[in-house]
Design a protein around this nucleic acid. Structure first.
Length: 249
DNA sequence: ACCTATGTTGATAC
DNA sequence: GGTATCAACATAGG
């Protein structure tokens, strides 16, 4: 689920329902999700602190506190943020801040590919996909020999685009996912950026990343919602990819 | 039973 | 350095 729009929604939830609340205790015993921290380490840093701000860059979120420590949160593949809900009966709450008012903020994540860490390292993330400028997009995305799809999903290049959004973006811009990134013209790159921004805005408005016209047809036997051609599917950049061979050939 | 699939990321090898 | 592959995790489905 989580791509940039999902994470932005989660960030807003934290902002609206978490800020100002004081942490009484922290559930940080899942040391896989909280690696490299040991059990109790995050709790020690955060207990007594009050949440003061919630930020996002790409798919990474972080929460600031009035005493200094920063909590980084990543939703991984199946993670989500839950505020003031009962603990998950299946044990999928991998990390939680428990507030002195009795409420809690949980990272619920079946597959445990999410992360909760102190002072997250954001240095290797490219510019946020929702904010990146035209020039920078051309420079960063339009280079290299790898397929353009791999390029736009590379978080070091631009941050926030995942597999589903990448297919939607490429389909909208009528660019083949396999096109070598460095061979795209500036015009094509500008169209890609335009589609990226549109898909992100749509996702945020609708409340999740799995939106768009292509997405419902992203199944075996699916057809292009524009021209009706049978969609192709294969692995590109290591990920399952659907595209229209007629329009994105 | 065994193999595949799945929205992410990172380490590792060429 | 850039690129590709695999592993980490848990579950569902053929």
């Amino acid at each position: 689920m989580p791509e940039l729009p999902d994470v932005e929604i989660a960030r807003r939830v934290i902002e609206e329902r978490g800020l100002g609340r004081r942490i009484a205790s922290v559930e940080d015993s899942d040391t896989w999700v909280s690696r490299p921290h040991g059990p109790g380490e995050i709790a020690q840093a955060l207990t007594g602190a009050r949440l003061t701000a919630a930020h996002r860059h790409g798919k990474t979120m972080w929460i600031e506190t009035d005493t200094g420590p920063v909590v980084g949160l990543h939703l991984g593949m199946t993670g989500g943020i839950r505020v003031d809900e009962d603990p998950d009966p299946r044990g999928w709450d991998r990390f939680a801040l428990e507030f002195e008012d009795g409420g809690r903020l949980a990272l619920r994540d079946m597959r445990r590919l999410g992360r909760a860490v102190l002072d997250p390292d954001l240095s290797r993330l490219g510019p946020d996909a929702a904010e990146v400028g035209r020039h920078e997009f051309r420079e960063r995305v339009g280079r290299g020999e790898s397929p353009i799809k791999a390029r736009v999903m590379d978080q070091n290049v631009i941050a926030g685009v995942g597999n589903l959004m990448a297919d939607e973006i490429l389909w909208r811009a009528r660019v083949s996912p396999r096109a070598p990134a460095g061979e795209l013209t500036d015009d094509r790159l500008d169209e890609l950026r335009r589609a990226t921004r549109a898909v992100i805005r749509l996702g945020i408005r609708e409340g999740h990343a799995g939106v768009g016209e292509l997405n419902p047809h992203r199944i075996k036997g699916g057809t292009c919602p524009r021209c009706g051609a049978a969609l192709e599917h294969d692995r590109v950049g290591g990920r399952t990819t659907f595209w229209c061979p007629r329009e994105q050939g």
